[in-house]
Amino acid sequence: MLPQTIPTLTGRRVTLRPFRESDAPLVQSVADDPLIPLITTVPTTGSLEDALAYIDRQHERLASGAGYSFAIANAETDEMVGQIGLWLAAIKHGRASTGYWVAPQHRRRGYVSDALRTLSDWALSLDEVQRLELYVEPWNEGSWHAAEKCGFQREGLLRSWQLVGGERKDMYMYSRIRSRRQTPAANPPKPMAPNSHTHTGWHYEWVREASCSITAASSSERLHIGQ
């Protein structure tokens, strides 16, 4: 059975945890990013009220069945640097998808690769997840290189796959599957014991935030970056 609460997952550089109200300033900081609000539901107003509403939506993802929405936090400071999700629209077929975004001021520090690896290892340790997918725009070389480092394989080009900013966009399809020789996946990240920072019922919207591909998101949350 899939977890009924959002776990806290530990990586080398990051911790994946439920969102908190104290994460609002980071959400506000990306309001004017040229890509993140375009492919996610991150508000463009930069207001505290809208940032808190975004955080509330993340709390609702699991309860609605959309999936699990995690804040990506610096492992040492616990400061939020981005978001990553595990989306369950096709879970009855054994498939899940992932997408994420990281704020510009926190990029090129290894957070993306560590967050993706930590999320993927955990997801593929779940009995229900046999295949994990993500979508990357062809121009986003940094994103698909990160995916390949984490064991994802490119399967092909999906032409005119998604509407982004009013235009149909091509996407590379990447996937990582559970090894046939080991079930569940070996050495998945260990969820931390519940504490004051662990909340239940948090997750992402599937439609705009869920399918964010690795470029910043994929195709569900609005596109790929993360909800």
Results as ranks from 00 to 15, higher is better:
40 T>V: 12
110 G>F: 01
53 A>S: 04
17 R>W: 04
15 T>E: 03
95 R>S: 13
26 L>D: 05
30 V>W: 08
29 S>V: 05
102 V>T: 05
37 P>W: 02
17 R>M: 03
56 D>N: 10
61 R>Y: 14
92 K>V: 09
82 G>E: 10
120 S>A: 12
102 V>F: 03
52 L>P: 08
20 R>K: 14
94 G>T: 10
61 R>I: 11
131 R>F: 04
42 V>H: 04
71 A>M: 14
94 G>P: 00
122 W>Q: 00
114 D>C: 07
52 L>W: 11
61 R>F: 11
51 A>Q: 07
21 E>L: 08
115 A>H: 02
90 A>P: 03
93 H>V: 00
43 P>G: 07
117 R>L: 06
124 L>F: 08
49 E>N: 09
132 L>S: 02
87 W>D: 07
40 T>F: 03
120 S>Y: 02
60 E>C: 05
115 A>R: 02
32 D>M: 06
110 G>A: 09
133 E>S: 12
100 Y>V: 00
91 I>P: 13
59 H>P: 09
68 Y>N: 02
136 V>H: 01
101 W>L: 06
55 I>M: 08
59 H>G: 09
120 S>H: 03
73 A>L: 14
24 A>T: 06
80 M>G: 12
95 R>P: 03
17 R>T: 00
133 E>L: 14
79 E>R: 15
130 Q>D: 11
33 D>W: 09
22 S>N: 10
76 E>N: 15
48 L>Q: 12
88 L>H: 07
28 Q>P: 00
28 Q>L: 03
84 I>T: 13
65 G>K: 15
54 Y>W: 11
109 R>L: 04
132 L>Q: 02
81 V>S: 04
22 S>V: 11
80 M>Q: 15
61 R>N: 15
101 W>H: 10
33 D>N: 14
19 F>W: 12
119 L>A: 01
37 P>Y: 02
35 L>D: 05
122 W>I: 00
25 P>R: 01
56 D>M: 08
89 A>H: 15
20 R>G: 10
113 S>R: 14
121 D>G: 08
125 S>M: 00
84 I>N: 07
100 Y>G: 02
62 L>E: 09
66 A>T: 12
103 A>N: 12
77 T>K: 10
67 G>N: 12
60 E>T: 08
131 R>D: 09
90 A>H: 14
67 G>E: 09
56 D>W: 04
109 R>I: 00
71 A>C: 15
81 V>Y: 08
57 R>I: 01
105 Q>R: 15
126 L>N: 09
134 L>A: 07
95 R>K: 14
65 G>C: 12
120 S>E: 01
56 D>K: 11
